[in-house]
């Protein structure tokens, strides 16, 4: 509505402001008419002219019809313009809503260049983006207000829409359809960045995690033991980290967790403290989230966090 960074949002904004001002003007006119009707001085022997009143009422109705018709036409043109985006050379992203996070899959004609990540979407500025929507459980709704309006993610009903960011920025989106307990904490981050930066990010995301083969430094040994914690404790039951034996798809893919801005589906910034707090007590942050609390010793926790922070 305001702060449009994308083509679609800009088109909507262009319809919004005139609509707002015209309707506000009508509202004020109605209120003035009402106030005058209440307060106007009445002559004792005033002859009420029903015909003249009827003329005024008729004019008001006619005005309403004309304004609404004009509004309807501009609405049609806006909808057409939004649908009429150029669709050449687009990035295709499949967004799947789950309770309560987002799976993000970039498709590519080359299988090795397909990418799965979660809760953070990068898009190149100026290139059209095709978003394919689906849901793995209940109905969610995908909404980045700076780029486009909402689109529901409906189980069993894959559909698609297009959007395009026209200037760079980092946007917060949030699920807009009530999807259960943690609907309030199901957010995501969208980063619109120049093509080169996007490509660099994409290539980095394609790489698998690398666990130091030999522990030379203390940091390396911490990372190695963190990796061991990850694959022997509960983490491995739900998460994938490419390059390790962890390969479950119940929870978000964590291969490049450290490169993300937020954790817990846009609920906390990605800092060491927040990450540790989330691993130990997710139910304290998102009560009802599907991630269970983890009983780790302080040493295990420190190693695990070091490992997760190495996943750039």
């Amino acid at each position: 509505m305001t702060d449009a960074f994308g083509r679609q949002a800009a088109l909507i904004e262009r319809l919004w402001w005139p609509t707002l001002w015209v309707l506000t003007a009508i509202y004020i006119a109605v209120m003035i008419a009402l106030a005058y009707a209440m307060l106007r001085r009445r002559h004792v022997d005033e002859v009420k002219s029903e015909v003249r009143t009827a003329r005024w009422v008729g004019a008001a109705i006619a005005g309403t019809v004309v304004i609404l018709f004009a509004y309807f036409i501009s609405d049609l043109f806006t909808a057409r313009a939004i649908a009429g985006i150029e669709r050449k050379d687009g990035v295709t992203i499949e967004v799947t809503g789950l309770q309560w996070w987002w799976r993000v899959e970039y498709s590519d004609s080359v299988p090795e260049r397909r990418l799965t990540t979660a809760n953070e979407i990068h898009i190149p500025v100026g290139r059209p983006v095709r978003i394919i929507t689906s849901s793995a459980d209940v109905i969610h709704s995908f909404w980045i207000r700076e780029l486009h309006g909402k689109r529901d993610l409906i189980p069993g009903d894959k559909s698609e829409f297009w959007l395009r960011a026209d200037s760079a920025g980092v946007f917060r989106g949030q699920c807009a359809e009530f999807c259960g307990l943690e609907h309030a904490k199901m957010a995501l981050v969208v980063v619109a960045e120049p093509e080169a930066q996007f490509q660099a990010w994409y290539d980095r995301q394609l790489s698998a995690a690398r666990v130091p083969p030999v522990a030379v430094t203390r940091a390396d040994s911490l990372i190695r033991s963190g990796h061991d914690v990850f694959v022997t404790k509960a983490c491995v039951m739900c998460h994938t980290i490419r390059g390790t034996t962890a390969g479950s798809s119940i929870g978000p893919d964590l291969t490049h967790l450290a490169s993300r801005r937020m954790i817990a589906a846009g609920t906390r910034t990605n800092t060491r403290g927040n990450l540790a707090g989330w691993v130990v007590d997710p139910q304290g942050i998102k009560p009802g989230a599907l991630m269970p609390p983890n009983n780790l010793t302080p040493a295990e926790l420190e190693a695990l966090i070091s490992f997760l922070e190495s996943l750039k």
Binding site: M1, A9, L11, I12, L15, W16, T19, L20, L23, T24, I26, Y27, L68, Y71, D75, T78, A79, I82, S141, R145, H148, G149, K150, R151, A176, E177, F178
Partner: peptide, 17 residues
Amino acid sequence: MTGVMIASVPLDWQLHD
């Protein structure tokens, strides 16, 4: 007035829910 606004598909995409 706000009802008229959300009658429009594009505006409703932003304002819905």
